[in-house]
Amino acid sequence: MTDETTSAASHAEAFTDAPVWRAPRAGTKLATLVDMLRTEGGATCDELAIALGWRRHTVRGALAGAVRKRLGLNVIAREVAGRGRVYSIE
């Protein structure tokens, strides 16, 4: 029983380390998404969808999942007059 407890404790410690941030591979759609978010004015959901060939719900899912959670980047959404909701990386 002690072996199982020790094994479980060491296994849990292995996952407490913070994930290492890696940039997306160059030339991928995720890299394009991050580049567009880093531009001066940011990008709208429609602009991202057209550039990537995705639908709007896929863009929003990628922002929440791949960019925020997996890459750990802070995505800011703000309303801009004449453009609507604009996303950018802080």
Rank of each mutant, 00 (worst) to 15 (best):
E13W: 05
L73K: 07
G82S: 09
R56Q: 08
P19K: 01
A8E: 09
S7H: 10
V75L: 07
V34S: 06
T2N: 08
G53P: 04
A81G: 03
T28N: 13
G82N: 11
G84L: 02
A23K: 13
I89V: 15
S10R: 11
T6I: 11
P19T: 02
H57N: 08
T32C: 07
R83E: 07
A62S: 13
G84V: 00
H57K: 00
A81F: 07
D3N: 08
W21C: 04
A66K: 12
I89W: 09
T6C: 02
H57P: 00
R85A: 05
R56M: 00
T5F: 11
A26L: 07
R25E: 15
S88A: 15
V20A: 04
L37M: 08
T28E: 13
V80I: 13
V75R: 03
N74I: 02
L73M: 13
Y87K: 01
A66R: 11
R85C: 02
A64C: 05
G72H: 06
G41D: 15
A77R: 04
E40P: 07
D46C: 00
R25M: 10
G41E: 15
A81K: 13
S10V: 12
R56Y: 00
S7W: 04
P19Y: 00
T16L: 10
E4R: 11
A64W: 09
L63Y: 04
R25D: 15
G53R: 10
T44G: 10
D3W: 04
W54F: 15
T58G: 13
I50C: 06
P24W: 06
D46I: 02
V34M: 05
C45F: 00
T6Q: 06
R60E: 12
T5N: 03
G27K: 10
F15K: 12
V59C: 08
R60C: 03
L52Y: 09
T32Y: 00
R78P: 00
L33F: 15
R38T: 14
E13Y: 04
E4N: 03
E47G: 04
D3K: 12
K69P: 00
E4C: 01
G41K: 14
R83G: 01
A12E: 09
V75Q: 02
G27V: 11
E79L: 04
N74A: 13
F15S: 14
T2C: 01
V80F: 01
K69Y: 14
L71P: 08
L33T: 11
L73D: 05
A12Q: 07
V86W: 01
G42V: 03
N74T: 13
A26E: 15
G53F: 12
A31G: 03
A43P: 01
A49Y: 02
M36K: 11
E47M: 07
A64F: 10
T28V: 10
A51C: 03
